[in-house]
């Protein structure tokens, strides 16, 4: 069972470093309204985006400069996509999928691996609801994409690209519905029902769409070494992660695992090495087998007797290896 915890509420009787928490050196407190499960997992219900290296996010070009492009990633963040790190040419207003290379102490964000997304629009949800929108093994987002015929790409920053091909209005409706009910149980079934009714044919979360030809990854477009520990447990405060620079990405993200184990040990609990789902292509593509995106649906909303989310595999490096 989970209970709701509030800003200023004690969540640990010792100092812990984790996202969306605060410690005074003696105890640790929640800083935003969150769900706390019995086994100590803290999942924020609301909160701003905390940019981390390796995050795949979506933004739009807000400034074109000689050396690169400034992307709006959702207030209050902007990132810079240097011309060195991308071969694509962008114009003001273009929608771009990018990966965060580096975030410094004053939240300056360096971006790489830009991929222009055409013929679509951005929908916005609160970033903390992104895992729910993606669903276990991409189930939720695949279902919505399949039912609407839209290409949907979910950025970790809460920006979601929805293509115009397909029923954009229904996709938007489904996304809004998930965001509004992200903390409830049985959500996947309810969304399936809603989509079935709208489409006039049964839509099921178990449908695995035939993989469409995946867009060729641009150079170094590897992944999801998620930085674990968005949830309680393993986040290192701000700053760069082991000296990322644009050359490293070709080799995949081995740091993934090590990062997530920092600072998260707490009385025998497993560190939160959750690697986040591939927030990249939702629908047609892909992942399914190739990227084995981890289960990020680790929220245990109140009352949901769901099967256990896969236990944190902080040190499991297998995913990284596959990416390239």
């Amino acid at each position: 069972m989970s209970r709701i915890v509030f800003p200023g509420e004690v969540i640990a009787e010792k100092p812990v470093r984790a996202s969306y928490t605060y410690t005074d050196g003696e105890k640790t407190y929640a800083t935003v309204i969150s769900l706390m499960s019995d086994d100590g997992k803290l999942v924020p219900l609301e909160g701003p985006y905390e940019p981390l290296a390796e995050d795949v996010v979506i933004g739009f070009v807000s400034d074109v400069r000689f050396a690169g492009f400034t992307l709006d990633l959702g207030a209050p963040f902007t990132g810079f996509l240097s011309s060195r790190d991308t071969r694509i040419v962008l114009a003001l207003g273009d929608i771009v999928q990018v990966r965060i290379l580096n975030v410094d102490e004053v939240k300056t964000i360096d971006l790489g691996d830009g991929r222009k997304l055409e013929n679509g629009a951005i929908e916005k949800i609160s970033p903390v609801k992104v895992p729910r929108l993606i669903g276990k093994r991409n189930s939720m987002i695949n279902m919505i994409a399949h039912a609407t015929g839209c290409q949907i790409i979910v950025g970790r920053n809460g920006y979601i690209f929805v293509s115009h091909t397909g029923n954009h209005a229904l996709a938007r409706q489904a996304i809004t519905f998930v965001a509004a009910h992200a903390h409830t149980s049985g959500l996947t079934d309810r969304v399936a029902a809603m989509l079935s009714e709208a489409c006039g044919r049964p839509i099921s979360p178990d449908v695995v769409p035939a993989p469409a030809p995946a867009p060729a990854p641009s150079g170094g477009y590897g992944y999801f070494g998620g930085s674990g520990g968005r949830e309680y447990g393993g986040r290192r405060e701000g700053g760069s992660r082991g000296g990322h620079d644009s050359r490293r990405r070709e080799g995949g993200y081995r740091e993934g695992g090590s990062r997530s184990s920092s600072g998260s040990q707490d009385g025998g609990r497993r560190p939160f090495g959750h690697r986040r789902e591939n927030p990249g292509e939702g629908s047609n593509a892909q992942h399914s087998d190739q990227n084995k995106a981890q289960n990020t649906d680790n929220q245990t909303p109140a009352g949901q007797g769901q099967e256990n989310p896969s236990p944190p595999r902080a040190n499991d490096q297998t995913n990284e290896g596959q990416s390239q």
Binding site: F60, V61, S62, D72, L92, G93, I95, A121, I122, H164, H168, A169, R172
Partner: peptide
């Protein structure tokens, strides 16, 4: 910056209307 977002929204709107649809 918000002007750019407005332009994007404008495009979406026009696109939908050309298909005879409103977002809601």
């Amino acid at each position: 910056m918000s002007e750019i977002q407005d332009e994007l929204k404008r495009d979406v709107l026009r696109n939908m209307l050309s298909q005879g649809r409103r977002a809601d």
